[in-house]
Design a protein around this nucleic acid. Structure first.
Lengths: 132, 132
DNA sequence: GTTCGTGCAAACGGTTTGCAACAAT
DNA sequence: ATTGTTGCAAACCGTTTGCACGAAC
């Protein structure tokens, strides 16, 4: 992917094969993988990839603003390619995490919160998918 | 505290001195302490208290529904005596976590979320305290 | 040949577990 | 004696780090 190389370059990241493999997966998936899952996914197509390099690369992508981490489930850190403001829906039955556009949820806070200057908010919705 | 002993008994927890010390702090604070902080806080008044017993007791309280864990900040697990539905406000400057009553925030979800059967939601607000 | 990235293995830190000593009944 | 709790230390697991090798310029 030419584009990916450009993106990395633009963020001061040298596009090595390992980094391309990791970024190529993690920046374009809507799953919310853990570091382990990234390794398991990418290892086959890039057999020399080590755990340390996965972590180094993921941290680099986060540092450069291409990726963010999320702490949605008890003690599990996942990586999210959606770096803008958005919310999440977690399917209780499958554990799957869905991104929800920021505009899809409006919040209205009671005047009892007058002392709080709210600059940002994130909503975590839980439930299950409706059978349609 | 007579009450505390009763509460523990009612939940099938034998009220040992260590458990009373831990529960006496963690169930009645509105801070959101980590396990470390619980140990540091309670150790002085209960010198024989070990780290393992703090974890065992906290896990027991969670298991019995007297306490819950929260994952609000990157990789930090805190314990929250408020076991009902509620939201949180995190002061960006101090990192302090405030409990927000569930009714103090209304959410309204866009019809684009029609496929999601939402059974529960939690809002994390961020910002800073207004100087009054 | 200097710089940067990699793989490996060791270190790390928060949490858990195994176990022997120790109540309490 | 049995049951349950404790403290200690070791184990655990996800993540980070140190370091020597290797590729690129």
């Amino acid at each position: 992917m030419k584009n990916l190389i450009e993106v990395l370059n633009r963020h001061g990241i040298q596009p090595t094969p390992q980094r391309l493999a990791v970024a190529g997966f993690v920046l374009f998936t809507d799953r919310h993988p853990t570091a382990e899952e990234v390794l398991a996914q990418v290892q086959p197509s890039c057999p020399t990839l080590s755990k340390a390099t996965v972590y180094n690369t993921l941290n680099l992508l986060v540092e450069r603003g291409l990726l963010r981490t999320q702490n949605l489930l008890e003690g599990v850190v996942v990586f999210d390619a959606n770096t803008g403001h958005h919310h999440h829906f977690i399917d209780d039955q499958t554990g799957k995490i869905y991104d929800i556009p920021h505009e899809a949820v409006d919040i209205q806070s009671h005047e009892s919160l007058a002392d709080f200057e709210i600059t940002e908010y994130q909503v975590t919705l839980r439930g299950h998918l409706k059978k349609k």
